[in-house]
Amino acid sequence: MSLINSLLEGLDANDRERTVGLIKTNIAADLENVAAGAGPARQVDVGTRSRARRSGSTSGR
């Protein structure tokens, strides 16, 4: 089963048609943006990445 089919499973005909239309519209917009030279949208929040911490002694301060 494809990803799209799994997303549409359980939807009635109207919801399925609307969802497929939204997916097609978003794909078309992304392709147009890439053709115009734009890079893919960057996700800002990508998990729970922690900052690097300094370890060792703090002497000299």
Score class of each variant (00 low, 15 high):
Met1Tyr: 11
Met1Val: 14
Met1Phe: 14
Ser2Leu: 08
Ser2Asn: 15
Ser2Ile: 01
Leu3Cys: 11
Leu3Ser: 15
Leu3Lys: 15
Ile4Met: 12
Asn5Met: 06
Asn5Ser: 11
Asn5Gly: 12
Ser6Cys: 09
Ser6Asn: 12
Leu7Val: 09
Leu7Ile: 12
Leu7Arg: 09
Leu8Phe: 00
Leu8Asn: 00
Leu8His: 00
Glu9Ile: 00
Glu9Ala: 07
Gly10Trp: 04
Gly10Tyr: 06
Gly10Arg: 10
Gly10Asn: 08
Leu11Ala: 04
Leu11Asn: 00
Leu11Lys: 04
Asp12Lys: 01
Asp12Ala: 05
Ala13His: 04
Ala13Trp: 01
Ala13Val: 09
Asn14Arg: 08
Asn14Thr: 15
Asn14Asp: 14
Asn14Lys: 10
Asp15Phe: 05
Arg16Met: 02
Arg16Gln: 10
Arg16Ala: 10
Glu17Asp: 12
Arg18Asn: 08
Val20Ser: 00
Val20Trp: 00
Val20Ala: 00
Gly21Thr: 11
Gly21Gln: 10
Gly21Met: 04
Leu22Asn: 12
Leu22Trp: 06
Leu22Ala: 07
Leu22Met: 13
Ile23Gln: 00
Ile23Pro: 00
Ile23Met: 11
Ile23Phe: 10
Lys24Gly: 08
Lys24Phe: 04
Lys24Asn: 14
Lys24Val: 14
Lys24Glu: 14
Thr25Gly: 13
Asn26Thr: 06
Asn26Tyr: 12
Ile27Asn: 09
Ala28Phe: 06
Ala28Gln: 13
Ala29Gln: 11
Asp30Met: 14
Asp30Cys: 09
Asp30Gln: 14
Asp30Val: 15
Leu31Val: 15
Leu31Gly: 03
Glu32Val: 09
Glu32Gln: 12
Asn33Tyr: 05
Asn33Arg: 15
Asn33Thr: 05
Ala35Asp: 11
Ala35Cys: 04
Ala35Gly: 08
Ala36Lys: 09
Gly37Pro: 03
Gly37Asn: 06
Ala38Arg: 11
Ala38Phe: 05
Gly39Val: 06
Gly39Glu: 11
Gly39Arg: 06
Gly39Asn: 09
Pro40Gly: 07
Pro40Gln: 08
Pro40Leu: 08
Pro40Lys: 07
Ala41Gly: 03
Ala41Lys: 09
Arg42Gln: 14
Arg42Ile: 15
Arg42His: 08
Arg42Thr: 15
Gln43Asn: 12
Val44Gly: 13
Val44Met: 13
Val44Thr: 14
Asp45Thr: 15
Asp45Glu: 14
Val46Glu: 06
Val46Arg: 07
Val46Asn: 06
Val46Phe: 08
Val46Thr: 12
Gly47His: 02
Gly47Arg: 03
Gly47Met: 03
Gly47Ala: 05
Arg49Val: 11
Arg49Leu: 08
Arg49Gly: 02
Ser50His: 05
Arg51Cys: 01
Arg51Phe: 06
Arg51Val: 02
Ala52Asp: 03
Ala52Val: 10
Arg53Ser: 02
Arg54Asn: 06
Arg54Cys: 00
Arg54Asp: 01
Arg54Lys: 12
Arg54Leu: 02
Arg54Thr: 00
Arg54Gln: 06
Ser55Tyr: 07
Ser55Phe: 07
Ser55Cys: 02
Ser55Gly: 03
Gly56Ile: 04
Gly56Cys: 03
Gly56Asn: 02
Gly56Thr: 05
Thr58Arg: 10
Thr58Gln: 04
Thr58Trp: 01
Thr58Ile: 03
Thr58Gly: 05
Ser59His: 08
Ser59Ala: 14
Ser59Trp: 06
Ser59Arg: 12
Ser59Ile: 07
Ser59Gly: 07
Gly60His: 05
Arg61Ala: 13
Arg61Gln: 12
Arg61Asp: 11
Arg61Cys: 07
